[in-house]
């Protein structure tokens, strides 16, 4: 339910959810504004707000209707929307080692034949960009990345796998990403990282957050195993 015609657009998500939309599409500038407003709220969380979840282009407020009304949250958001947006380059750069191909990348052949590239070229093109993390969600630590080179665009698998191993790195159409936990999935898997992307027992269970960037660093099988052992130690 759109509850306001002014910018941002507000939508009702039940009796405890309010969505503030800052734009229509997937765009680094809109996303930077979302994160700036989220950060503004995080430093002074309004009473009665349980969570503020930033997305590609919106914020989802989870609130207790016995403590705060959505009208108050809408007013605060309108005031906050002129906050200076995040500098797109302000996030941290996180390096993710990846062992490409072989047993870790069972769909490398699919990506090669679909792109007409050699395996080394696929690896080189995939590991070159700095990918902006637009949003984290779906499973713990799963990031939605922007910036995949269009030469690597590959459709999803026709039949999704029941279980994609933890750490798998894959491609689905114009997206690339990683599976922090073993889960079902239909992405074309081209490699695997030895890093634990979700470590719930650590004080900070995650290596990155929305607004950070990721770069994939190709590593050998031996290096993969060395890092993996460190992670478990």
């Amino acid at each position: 339910m759109k509850t306001s015609d002014s910018n941002p657009v507000f939508r009702t998500a039940g009796d405890t959810g309010l969505i503030a939309e800052f734009g229509e599409g997937i765009d680094p500038v809109i996303n930077a504004r979302v994160r700036a407003v989220a950060r503004g709220f995080a430093s002074q969380m309004p009473q009665g707000v349980k969570e503020i979840i930033p997305t590609y282009r919106s914020l989802l407020f989870i609130y207790d209707p016995c403590m705060v009304s959505p009208d108050i949250l809408m007013d605060l958001t309108r005031k906050m929307k002129d906050t200076e947006p995040d500098d797109i380059t302000a996030g941290r750069m996180v390096e993710i080692p990846v062992c490409y191909g072989g047993e870790y990348g069972p769909d490398m052949d699919n990506v090669r034949s679909s792109s007409g590239l050699a395996e080394q070229e696929v690896i080189q093109i995939h590991s070159r960009p700095e990918y902006l993390i637009y949003m984290v969600g779906f499973t713990p630590g799963f990031c939605f990345l922007g910036g995949l080179d269009e030469r690597l665009f590959t459709p999803r698998l026709k039949t999704p796998r029941m279980a994609v191993p933890q750490g798998s790195v894959g491609i689905a159409n114009n997206q690339t990403g990683m599976y922090p936990i073993e889960s079902p999935g239909g992405w074309q898997i081209i490699g695997r990282t030895p890093l634990r992307l979700f470590a719930p027992e650590r004080e900070n269970p995650f290596l990155y957050r929305a607004g950070d960037s990721i770069r994939f660093i190709p590593v050998s099988d031996a290096e993969y195993h060395r890092i993996k052992q460190e992670e478990q130690g």
Binding site: A13, G14, E24, G25, Y56, R57, S58, L60, G137, F144
Partner: peptide
């Protein structure tokens, strides 16, 4: 555009 949901959606 993918977004989070609340229980009951």
């Amino acid at each position: 555009v993918s977004e989070p949901s609340v229980p009951g959606s």
